[in-house]
Computed example of a mutant assay.
Amino acid sequence: MRPRLDPFIVALLVTAIVASFVPVTGSGLDVLKNVSLVAIGLLFFLYGARLSTAETIAGLKYWRLHAAILSTTFVAFPLLGLGAHLLEHGVLTPGLADGVLLLCLVPSTVQSCVVYTRIARGNVAGAVVSASLSNLVGVFLTPALVALLMTSDAHVDAGAVTRIVLQLFVPFVLGQMLRPVIGGFIARHDNRLILFDRSSILLVVFVAFSEGAEAHIWSTLKVWDVFAVVVVCAGLLTIAMGWTVLLGRLLGFARADRIPLLFCGCNKSLASGLPIASVLFAGPDVALIVLPLMFYHQLQIITGAVVAGRLARTAP
């Protein structure tokens, strides 16, 4: 399976560049912020509506798999992020170092983890439940980890957590509750709705980078800074993949369970991470904070496609 550049990755890069050079400012930016809040809420409503109740029940029995994935996402990764944050002294700028730590605190993706697990012929039901649990838990646990590990840089209080819950968790639950009514419609129009999913994320990226450009934060970055954060993200992904492979073998998982552990354990969610960052890190610094997450997301998509293809070819 030859790696191909995902059009969504290209769109992310183009959006960031356009917003950096032609940002929306003033009242126009305020309007876009409000629109992005609604769009992300609808995005998570659709996530909830897509989640099959039958598939969820089938996947709940793989509790050892879920425990391994959640511990990787919210224990091993934060420890790894603390180590990487030490690179602030001499390798990364303070803003980018904070962004690297943040990407280690956000939950896993849903869609790409499930797709790659299916391609690699792994435990799809386990991947669906683990990735969904990661996002639901992450709504509460990511702000708590940010408050614990990034106290001086983030604004974490009851109001911030409430906004995150209202923006991500409540729409997800509503979507799941209404699935019996709208599930058929969602399934029939899923291709078009995926376009809305990606457009919502692009809108949040555009808002964040517009804020950054308005505050002239890019004048503080050099080409080396960008190169350094890409290298650090690649290193994090390599270590995470090695850890999940080793953990799966140590726990004696069958091949079918090692596959979702690999993908769900290594992946980090742009869809969850961006809105959480926009709430916890108010102001123009959000653009720098989310830059490592964007780079990591692109690396995991490309790497995941290659790995999933190879696993599919070697499946028994």
Rank of each mutant, 00 (worst) to 15 (best):
R2H: 03
D6M: 06
P7S: 11
T15H: 03
T15G: 03
A16T: 02
I17Y: 00
A19Y: 02
S20N: 13
V22L: 11
D30N: 13
S36K: 03
S36Y: 09
V38P: 03
L42I: 09
L43C: 15
Y47G: 02
R50T: 15
A54P: 07
A54Y: 04
A58N: 04
G59T: 02
K61M: 03
W63A: 15
R64F: 09
S71H: 10
V75N: 13
A76E: 10
L80N: 07
A84Y: 03
A84P: 07
G95D: 04
V106M: 12
Q111V: 12
S112G: 05
V115M: 07
I119R: 00
G122V: 00
V124M: 05
A125P: 05
A125Q: 12
A127Y: 02
L133Q: 14
G138Q: 15
V139A: 06
V139F: 13
A147D: 08
L148E: 08
L148C: 01
M150R: 07
H155V: 04
V156S: 01
A158T: 13
G159H: 15
G159I: 05
R163C: 06
L178N: 08
R179Q: 15
P180Y: 09
I182H: 14
G184M: 15
R188W: 03
D190W: 06
R192F: 14
L195T: 14
L195R: 08
I201H: 05
I201F: 12
L202Y: 10
V204S: 06
F206A: 12
S210I: 01
S210V: 08
A213K: 04
A215Y: 04
T220Y: 11
L221K: 09
W224D: 06
A228M: 02
A234C: 13
M241F: 08
W243A: 11
L247I: 08
L250Y: 07
L251W: 03
F253S: 02
L261E: 02
C266H: 14
C266L: 14
C266E: 06
N267L: 10
S269G: 06
A271R: 05
S272D: 15
A277P: 06
S278K: 06
S278R: 09
L280S: 04
F281A: 01
G283P: 11
V286W: 01
I289C: 02
V290R: 00
L291G: 12
P292F: 00
P292H: 00
L293I: 03
H297F: 09
T303F: 10
A315S: 08
A315W: 08
